[in-house]
Design a protein around this nucleic acid. Structure first.
Lengths: 341, 341
DNA sequence: CTGAAAGCGCTTACAG
DNA sequence: CTGAAAGCGCTTACAG
């Protein structure tokens, strides 16, 4: 015999389907004695609910959707993203919610998936990441009326609640630290310029540079890849007047940049200070270990998941949540701009 | 008005629900003209099937399950795993199949999830990874009768089909290469001893050592973490007679080991050759770049997904699939055991 | 406290 | 070629 249904249990326990349903769901409507008998029979027959039947009746699916428009091969490369995924996953699984993951080619395809999953009732809500400057996904998700939590900066995401960290403050703290070490020519290897957080970091650097009177503060956009991180570093270090410090928007780029410096005979931190905007095992295990902005990306993922779960329980609970501003962990890749020796 | 159902379409098109279903699914039973009209109405009303209703009727869920028993925080660390996930995901999404991901504490919890997802009809099949020496999960999955593809070595997985690469051949090729460079004392920083592939690599090293007459070939088990990779390397390099080459079972450990060597003033490759059993961006971007075993992990993930999709279409198609043996990519971290200078 | 019935949205034999 | 009906497994008002 296949999987038992509540019909089987009802028959075995000598009650109606309705009674079984009440007992199994802990609702009033059956006597304590009957409830116990039913539960025992269900246990013995190893019954589990058929999720599709419940969903058809209007229950929650028990799944959250995460759709990413990136080249599939690059997903495995970014420690930030992997950590985020772990955190999301940890919190969701605590609440018996699965994470449905899909990687697509571009934003148009991503939007199509939102539409499809929403109308097919595949997920209960979405997590939106990689917020763009004029993000077309916001309006679509609002229109679909699906509970959605945005991982991104302050404002700029319509009526959708967000969980965010203060990138601007973070960048300011890096630049102030470097300026205090005497650095006056600072370069910034930024990520994709279409991302909101990239723009915020670029603006923060520019503002800090003006305020602190730096002689040079240039932001170079990249695609976040180690290849562009390396080539842009090479170009910067080949200049007559090269920067004495470089801030990298990701640890993969920072490590690639460190490799280029070593290859070109530029000593870190003696000739060049290196700071990574992301901390991870990568930043710790290279030599010298990298000064990096430490944020608990795993915890961030957990918070995003918790926000979405809260939204599912109570749609009125939508609110923006600011997470602690990342702190700078100083390791051996940064030093004075004027070493004594 | 909410999402349209086939009832709405039937009414709008002036036909029965059955006719709509036939038209939408491309089955015979409606005239070409009626079909076109129905499809047009469905398009206009922006109809999509409710997946739960289809599943309840016996259709495929359109999801594959991947359950991992690892500390959630470590998932983000391993490039191998992240690449595998990308590959799985890429192939599944091509066939409109979602990947349902769950990370649990231990094997017991993992087994419980298999039982639950199977009886709740949450997924159509499973991908099984991290094969253990006496793996209790095999019997459970066989009993559940769920289509499952194992990512692992040859044999040792009951009746479940597998996709595997030849770890033994791979290890032999590394040791032969090192021996040809004159190395006679080779250490191996292995992974978790409970894993089948760890055991296979350890045995391969031992066999090769005997055949090639190496004076030392020790395998040190670890938990795959950068911390143990570093501490075990430190212990090995502190010996009076230290190895002239170390083979690391993962790139994270190899990079950590490289850092330790630098820190201890052991020059790579002059004093120590370093080989990683995993290749990734990590191995490429450190300095010196690491000689590593290159396998296309992304493609491996794609193949596993394809195997599972094939199994869903035709349960009789179960067969083991051997993937190409990984090749050694020689970079700058390996050299002669007797450098001239 | 319990039972019989309708309904969620789709598919599919079965009559016409 | 088309329509009316039953069924997938569960939940939930509605009578008793």
């Amino acid at each position: 015999m296949g999987r038992p249904t509540i019909d089987d249990i009802a028959r075995a326990a000598g009650v109606s389907k309705g009674a079984v349903s009440f007992a199994l769901n802990g609702r009033p409507g059956v006597s304590e004695q009957t409830r116990r008998r039913i539960l025992q029979v269900a246990e013995e027959m190893n019954w589990r609910p058929h999720s599709a039947a419940r969903v058809l009746g209007g229950a929650r699916v028990g799944a959250a959707g995460l759709v990413l428009a990136r080249p599939a091969r690059t997903i495995g490369v970014e420690p930030f993203f992997a950590q985020l995924l772990s955190g999301l996953q940890a919190e969701f699984s605590r609440c018996a919610t699965a994470l449905q993951l899909l990687v697509v080619e571009d934003t148009a395809a991503e939007i199509e998936v939102y539409r499809r999953w929403a109308s097919e009732h595949r997920v209960d809500g979405f997590v939106l990441v990689d917020l763009q400057v004029r993000d077309p996904r916001i309006a679509v998700l609002e229109e679909l009326g699906m509970p959605t939590v945005v991982l991104g900066g302050p404002g700029r995401h319509g009526s959708l609640p967000s969980v965010w960290a203060d990138d601007r403050e973070a960048m300011l703290s890096i630049v102030e630290y470097l300026a205090a070490l005497g650095h006056r020519r600072i370069a910034h290897l930024a990520g994709l310029p279409a991302f909101q957080h990239t723009q915020r970091r670029i603006r923060a650097l520019r503002d800090a540079a003006r305020r602190l009177g730096l002689s040079e503060a240039v932001s170079v956009p990249t695609d976040f890849s180690d290849a562009e991180g390396a080539s842009a570093t090479r170009a910067l270090l080949a200049r007559r007047e090269r920067p004495t410090a470089i801030v990298y928007d990701s640890d993969v780029m920072a490590v690639a940049g460190l490799g280029v410096a070593t290859e070109m005979g530029v000593r870190v931190p003696r000739d060049l200070s290196v700071v990574s905007f992301d901390d991870s095992v990568l930043a710790r295990i290279v030599h010298p270990p990298l000064t990096a902005l430490s944020r608990d990306t795993f915890a961030l993922g957990e918070q995003v998941a918790r926000a979405l779960l809260g939204l599912l329980d109570d749609p009125a609970s939508a609110a923006d949540l600011k997470t602690p501003t990342p702190r700078l962990t100083v390791r051996e890749s940064t030093g004075s701009a004027f070493p004594r020796t």
